[in-house]
């Protein structure tokens, strides 16, 4: 069942019809739709959105560190449908201890580098990713720079 505030959004209704347990929340702010998706359903929902709802482009994958809130990490996906000229934001939450989520590279190949970047800077692991290694930081770097508990200044110990 989807929350009442999403009932006027056709894409949300379609996703709900596809999988009744996929959507856990959402909102409409500044003219932008956000759907919160259950982390276990992310790949199937993305596949549905790409092939059925024509969101052919994955614009970006990123994360937000909500430390000290729990679940700590919020994964954010921005999708664009060229045909419908509309944007959609998907969100998933993961926990602080061993943050992990399934990779969407099987749906969009562009997720490859986007997810590598999130892995590199946030330390979130992507299951079934074909090439999960650091991309911005040097190999062997310790720590994940974009986490809130990573200092901005200071020398490496």
């Amino acid at each position: 069942m989807i929350p009442d505030n999403l009932r006027e959004y056709a894409v949300a209704l379609a996703v709900d019809a596809f999988d009744g347990e996929a959507i856990t929340g959402g909102k409409h702010e500044f003219g932008e739709w956000t759907l919160e998706v259950a982390p276990s359903k992310i790949v199937s929902v993305c596949g549905f959105l790409k092939y059925d709802q024509k969101f052919v482009r994955l614009s970006t994958v990123t994360a937000v560190d909500r430390y000290p809130a729990e679940p700590r990490f919020e994964l954010v996906y921005h999708l664009y449908s060229i045909e419908g000229n509309q944007w959609l934001r998907l969100k998933c939450r993961t926990h602080a201890t061993d943050p992990v989520i399934e990779s969407v590279t099987s749906v969009w190949r562009s997720a490859n580098w986007y997810e590598r970047e999130v892995f590199d800077l946030f330390g979130i692991r992507f299951v079934n990713h074909p090439d999960l290694r650091r991309i911005m930081m040097p190999e062997g770097w310790e720590g994940y720079p974009l986490r809130k508990d990573y200092p901005v200044t200071g020398s490496r110990v």
Binding site: E29, T34, S59, R89
Partner: peptide
């Protein structure tokens, strides 16, 4: 709140995703 603003840069799609937690500095 959060917004995703996309503009057309000379190279293509440039998107800024800004998340605010209500303070004077962005959360992300």
């Amino acid at each position: 709140g959060e917004v995703y603003q996309v503009i057309e840069s000379p190279r293509g799609e440039l998107g800024y995703y800004v998340v605010s937690d209500g303070t004077a500095r962005p959360l992300r």
